[in-house]
């Protein structure tokens, strides 16, 4: 059960950080509690565009130390806040420390 609590806490915290990125860096005009974790980032949903995608890649690097040179690899995780969180969590497991 405490594993569950830890997982929930980790995801909650990450989602909070990612919501801040959307609001501060991508200038998304929504309140944090309006930003659903599974909502699409590109196309539908928040309609981020190709420029935002490039910026998001930079954020992943500067905030979480994730620097994957293969754009195609990254693209599959830039679908929703949840998939981004999946990537960050997996990266942490693999690399130990926080980015």
């Amino acid at each position: 059960m405490s594993d569950l609590k830890a997982s929930i806490a980790e995801r909650e915290q990450l989602l909070g950080q990612l919501r801040d990125v959307l609001i501060d860096r991508m200038r998304l005009r929504r309140e944090p509690d309006e930003i659903d974790a599974d909502a699409p980032l590109f196309g539908a949903g928040f309609a981020l565009d190709s420029l935002d995608a490039v910026e998001l890649v930079v954020c992943l690097d500067t905030m979480f130390g994730i620097s994957i040179p293969d754009n195609a690899m990254l693209r599959q995780y830039m679908r929703s806040l949840n998939t981004l969180a999946d990537l960050v969590i997996a990266h942490r497991r693999e690399h130990g420390a926080r980015g």
Binding site: L51, D52, V58, T62
Partner: peptide
């Protein structure tokens, strides 16, 4: 805030 590496592409444009 973010340095040249984190510069906003949207704002640069």
């Amino acid at each position: 805030k973010y340095g040249y590496r984190g510069l906003s592409a949207n704002l640069f444009a």
